[in-house]
Design a protein around this nucleic acid. Sequence first.
DNA 1: CTGAAAGCGCTTACAG
DNA 2: CTGAAAGCGCTTACAG
Lengths: 367, 367
Amino acid sequence: MRGLPVAPKNKATITDVARAAGVSTATAGRVLGGYGHTSEDKKEQVLKAAQSLGYRPNALARSLITGKTRTLGVVAGDIQSPFYASVLRGISNVAEANGFGLLITNSDEAQSKEVRSVELLAQKQVDGLIVTPSDTRKARHLHNLRAMGVPLVLIDRAVAGLMVDRVATDNIAAAEHAVRHLIAAGHRRIGIVAELVDEDGGGLAAFLDRAIAGDPIETETLYPSWQRLLGYVRAHRIEGLSVDPRLTLRAGSYSAQAAQAVVPSLMTAAEAPTALFTTDGTMSEGAMRALNELQISIPGDVSIICFDDLDWMSFHRPGITTISQPRLAMGEAAARMLLERIRGEEYPPRTVLMPAELIERGSVARL
Amino acid sequence: MRGLPVAPKNKATITDVARAAGVSTATAGRVLGGYGHTSEDKKEQVLKAAQSLGYRPNALARSLITGKTRTLGVVAGDIQSPFYASVLRGISNVAEANGFGLLITNSDEAQSKEVRSVELLAQKQVDGLIVTPSDTRKARHLHNLRAMGVPLVLIDRAVAGLMVDRVATDNIAAAEHAVRHLIAAGHRRIGIVAELVDEDGGGLAAFLDRAIAGDPIETETLYPSWQRLLGYVRAHRIEGLSVDPRLTLRAGSYSAQAAQAVVPSLMTAAEAPTALFTTDGTMSEGAMRALNELQISIPGDVSIICFDDLDWMSFHRPGITTISQPRLAMGEAAARMLLERIRGEEYPPRTVLMPAELIERGSVARL
DNA sequence: CTGAAAGCGCTTACAG
DNA sequence: CTGAAAGCGCTTACAG
């Protein structure tokens, strides 16, 4: 029991309003809650009483009965990164337009944190969830959600065997496009820097072997960075170029530091690449830091194509050629699909692949 | 009534668990809710029953009784901007560490949206609110909150007469520092580009007159961009320089576009400045875009000091000298203060001014 | 330690 | 159209 220094919060309830208006709680509830029918004069009395009491509905009580909270839960990797920040804004735009609140958590791409987030959101009874799954293979918590009938939409990644709506970028095509653009400009030794965490099927070397051989690869549940690597390999195959595994750089984690750490040895090697493809915004920033420290100039010493169109890329000198994915629209699409499911609309699980666009600026030299 | 294609969500309640375990709901509630005392064997029975039924507590029901939701509400300007994205991550860090959820909304710096956000969050019964107020003069909705005893912490801005905890940057000192740094480097004509929306007391000209004359100015509830302008003027006064109002650029809104639009006329004027001070991350990006399009080189043609240390500033060529404010730490501090209030700790309203730091890189030339 | 009962603030059949 | 009553899924005194 703590004494509040300011006014006691005398929250008025529907009972208080009903008493003040001289009607039943049912009638007060009907006008305040906007359901059922009420005569004009009662309506007026109730509204006046509510007004003077400063009545504010308690969404908790309503939700407990209706089973709906009008709240969406989101599990993002890191709301601080430009990718998630934009996606979240997209989600927020449509949530807000529909009167939904947004409960947001970070997973830091760790499934243990993701599981905790989902549990928290589920206990808070969100009407649906948007998640960027940390693990594309196993995700019992997400399958459980599905089994409980909780609407779920995935962004950026799929989960093996989880049949739910999903929005992502066509990463393979986008990467293939970027790398073919470099090849067309005359580049033959092209480095790629990607996260490539969570390898499966024997790691990077084995994956490259299969990709280079053109073996069938289950691409749906591949991580985006692996998909982009696959696009890189395919571009080489199409153009009749061989892939040098020494040019495939794995950062190993999702951070600019990791990318920055891995670039120097490649760029100072005997057979350094003439061009670099960095597979997302964070990898791009790490690579740019490394190139800057090495005093390697763009595109004089090395050409570069990045992924994600970040603000600085347009005013950097030279302008950075990049693959732009519509982050905001991805968030909006995901939220819209989720709301449809919440409304009870039924379709087979949908996969929306958003178009990624090559934006040419000045970071690619013709050889 | 819609048919679910998958398993019916047979959500188990505490009643179901109690029945399965052969105890009362009170006992089941005690072990599941972690309150009161229970014998070891009953505890075991209940836990086993809960496990096999896949019981998940309904936080709504608990909150309705306890009056606590363990949820924080946040009204940010735009979660997509680097400033808010970082602040939010800071808030999220401490919320999560304390088992709190986060309900996040955008105001787009418009009070009408802010009012709606606050109302939504209040109805959802958040335990406390962190807001970046859009209007520093009038904010009835925030005063109401305070009067209702809802814990409230302000970030970045104060509200006139609203005595609540607050965390911000010492904007005047930071701007003064930046501008004196330019003056020390020999610059005499220094342009400033700032938002400067919501003028009061007669607009920009009148404000400048008062600032230049050294008239007392109520600085607490000044908008950050006005505070930074004041620091700019003070630096001139201290260094014995006069202020040329033609060098004070008002973008008029919080967007890179607005900043970009306003720079060219200044830079192409007869008496163009030799240096620019951009007063936040967004203004900085807009100014950089404009300079890039005008082919004005840094620091050869013009020197620049920005505000907020954005990722690209370190690898841009030249490196960008900037005032860095600890955005993440600001969010963390705000959340920590809010949690203290929620716990019932009582202090007089606290204002935490975070230190801003000048990071010297290569964008300032010595004249 | 345990259970029966009341109640949080609403909405929802059910009568009238 | 209106009200008395029951109930959403929990927690909290209150007895035993």
